[in-house]
Nucleic acid binder design. Sequence first.
DNA 1: CTCCTTTGTCTTTTT
DNA 2: GACAAAGGAG
Length: 794
Amino acid sequence: MMHSEKYALLNEPQKEAVFHTEGPLLILAGAGAGKTRVLTHRIAYLIEEKNVPPYNILAITFTNKAADEMKERVQKLVEFGDSVWVATFHSTCVRILRRFIDRLGYDTDFTIYDADDQKTAVRHVVKELNLDPKMYRERAMVNYISDAKTEMLSPKDKLEEAGSDYRARTEAQIFDAYEKMLKKNNALDFDDLLLKTVQLFEENEQVLSYWQDRFRYILVDEYQDTNEAQFKLVWLLARKHQNLCVVGDDDQSIYRFRGADIRNILEFEKHFPGTKVVKLEQNYRSTTHILDAANAVIRHNRGRKEKHLWSDLGEGIPVHFRFYDNAYQEAEEVVRTVVKGVRGGAHYKDYAVLFRTNAQSRLFEERCLLQNVPYQIVGSVNFYQRQEIKDLIAYLKTVAGGRDDISTRRIINVPRRGIGDTTLDKVASYASLKGLSLMEALRYIDDIAGIERAKTKLSAFYHLIGKLREQAGLLPDGRPSGEEVEFDELIRAIIDETDYYSTLEDFEDEKKEQKKENIEELISKAKDFQENYDGDHEATLSDFLEEIALVADVDAMSDDDDKLLLMTLHSSKGLEFPTVFLAGCEDGLFPSYQSISSGDYMDVEEERRLCYVGMTRAKKELFISGARMRTVNGETRYNDISRFVLEIPGNMLDNGALLKSGRTDRTGYDSDDRGYKGFSFKDRSVSDSYGGSFGSSENGAYGGGYKSPSGSSYTAKKPFTPPKPATFGRTFEVKKADGLEYGVGDRVQHMKFGCGTVLEIVDGKKDFEVAVNFDEYGEKRMFASFAKLKKIDS
DNA sequence: CTCCTTTGTCTTTTT
DNA sequence: GACAAAGGAG
């Protein structure tokens, strides 16, 4: 009544979902159907209309970003919205475990191991067991362990499962030793966070009951991506009150490879009898041309819930499709299309280029640099996984005084202190003999045999950490001294005391600067965290370490940056853009070769869902493209048009009639890998038909200017070299470069292209235009403000 | 113990 | 083609 206004803007099914508050509810929300809106309104409705204390509501998401967004929107929508528990699965678990994990025999100050630490742990274990690291690769073993954990199988289970199979038994033994190692280090990996919480609930009726009553109303976002452990967690929590609302779209489940089980959403009604199902099928994002094409693709999956996604945003622009002769050309045309759009009044941030693999970003990146297009690569290298950041965090962890040996090992010889593996192994074996951590063992350095030569070095390190602990407001053994510390100052102290910057000397100046910038970023993050901490106590070092352990990416894009976005399809989930480029649509790349040849049709189906996710990111315009020839992992490959593109009826594409030839010419990939790397001449007719730039005939007007090397290009086996961009008409009218630190004839350095000689500087209206002949990349023209050229001595 | 060369490896990856 | 890790020489 008094709140009805708030809910009046919802459509009928959305209202249904918001108002159905009691009992299990499954919301099948198609792409762009407003699911976040439903979730936030539902929370508001529970609080305002049903008088549910915000304290009793739990909303779980997968990403921090989604959690932050939801938090913000709930706060805007309803009073006391900020006391609703909105968090990711993992941070929810951490918060629960910090209070109760002692019941499972762990200390509540456990550390969290990321993928890197896991690898290190596996490496140590394999070595410890005297196994051949080539036979038991760390990457494979990490996957094995993670898979086992997601299925909630213990080392014992795996050993039984192995039977008499030697290899399987050994793997189970590695798993077992890995578990013991983590336990010894009081560490949990990401999978453990979920697993241990489930275990805690299963073994402690009272603890479970406490949380069940605490979270009387539970909402789960992206439910299609839950794995077994996450399902179990939700099931345990919701079992008592049954007020569980999950939102998801089976067509957007793209994390099967990480253990997500699509059956969780498909069989939700089985797990929760009496479930009400609401379908949200009106799409508020895309025009029908885009939606129809996406529907045409996803229709080819079996075992999905039938949906009729529709939109009243009008037909819009037909989906574009181009198949280029090579990947360079594809990148060039994509960037050129963006440039044209921006000239026509659009912003760079209106565009996103999506691709299957991170490696593909490089071509677009180079092209952007070349054409002075500001760009941002989203989520390729996680900030907190960068070497220098991990080093400093390892120092922080060691200083903070956990028993995390992996961190100690990481930094004990960084910078070089002359402490090598042999020494370390001796300390480690002494430590394990006495049940101590590495740091603790160093206290008894005189008792350790056979390390005479390194003894002074080790004790110097020990005292260094002791000194840092003092500065961190800790006593030498790690207990708090009551003294307050500024995090940023502590990190600076670590850098100074250890002379950390000396480790950066090996890197090129450009890289060195980058690393220093990253470190500054970390310092300001730390400061920021401490100043804005909203817990019920002063922020401790452990609080900070925990925060960053669970954060994936700090350099999340902000809306006010006007940049072209480059990202993988996976990172694009949940986002939307006026114009989307779906690049690299080639059989063997997307869908990937592995998924095609695995023999499991579910693998290709997952990629198809990925395709669907990508296509439905577009609001107004969708460009699909691919390239016949591209180098992957150093070898040249010739690919056909992606099967996903062929699944779109020709009349839905702007030049779809051409697809027909593609369809008939396609060689059978499903049976084997024949013809995958090889090139079949049958295909040539297809390729020749597809050249040309996106929606433009004035090829060559900007930058590039080469035409498809039609036909003849396939006879040559020589590797393709990117064509030199045509230069703008030369004027030879050399202007004096006031405002620039370099002039014609000077040697300069560019972040991407290395060293070169300045050929020409043209004073444009807004910027200097510089032509440089690079030693390795040849002649390039660029705007001075973007190029950031540095003068070097020649 | 460290530095340099060689070898092998490569999807996606919210935490 | 790029990067990390292992192996060998100083």
